[in-house]
């Protein structure tokens, strides 16, 4: 073969269309910002309604999670996420989507080994390493508190 492996690698790279980085970043920023603003708005509404600070802190994420779960089930979340990318993945909406999607996807494999086992397929690592990181953070916090 006349074209060498490294030449072929370059050819493949040249022909494969790159992601439109600039546009993706702007979209992620805008939609991520809208989701965050929505969260802020919800917080203000709940506060007006006379729910205490603790209650608001719990209710805002819960509301966003419920909205995402419903949108995922309706197939609308994918359409938003396609444009928003990290804008929808980084906020808690991404986490909710990551739990609901496999739960729906693996339904056909049964309630226990399908939905039950696969539900945390993507979210599982986040929980594991998130918990580990918070333990380390807590430990450092404790040292500096002394």
């Amino acid at each position: 073969m006349a074209v060498s492996d490294s030449e072929y690698g370059k050819m493949a790279k040249k022909i494969s269309p790159p992601s439109p980085k600039g546009l993706n970043i702007i979209k992620a920023f805008l939609i991520g910002g809208i989701i965050s603003a929505l969260g802020e708005g919800l917080g203000m509404i709940y506060e007006r309604a006379g729910i205490g600070e603790k209650g608001v802190k719990a209710l805002v994420p819960i509301t966003l999670i419920v909205i995402t779960a419903v949108l995922t089930a309706l197939g609308l979340f994918d359409k938003i996420a396609k444009h928003a990318g990290a804008g929808t993945i980084v906020p808690i909406t991404g986490f909710a989507n990551a739990v609901v999607s496999p739960a729906m996807e693996f339904q056909s494999e049964g309630r226990i080994l399908g939905t039950g086992a696969e539900m945390f397929r993507i979210a599982g690592p986040v929980i594991v390493y998130g918990s580990c990181a918070s333990v380390i953070y807590g430990f450092i916090y404790w040292i500096f508190q002394k």
Binding site: V3, Y8, M11, A12, I15
Partner: peptide
């Protein structure tokens, strides 16, 4: 579309 372009390119080059 990407693989097709590469195939045509390989045929032409080699």
């Amino acid at each position: 579309s990407v693989g097709s372009k590469l195939l045509c390119e390989l045929m032409k080059e080699n």
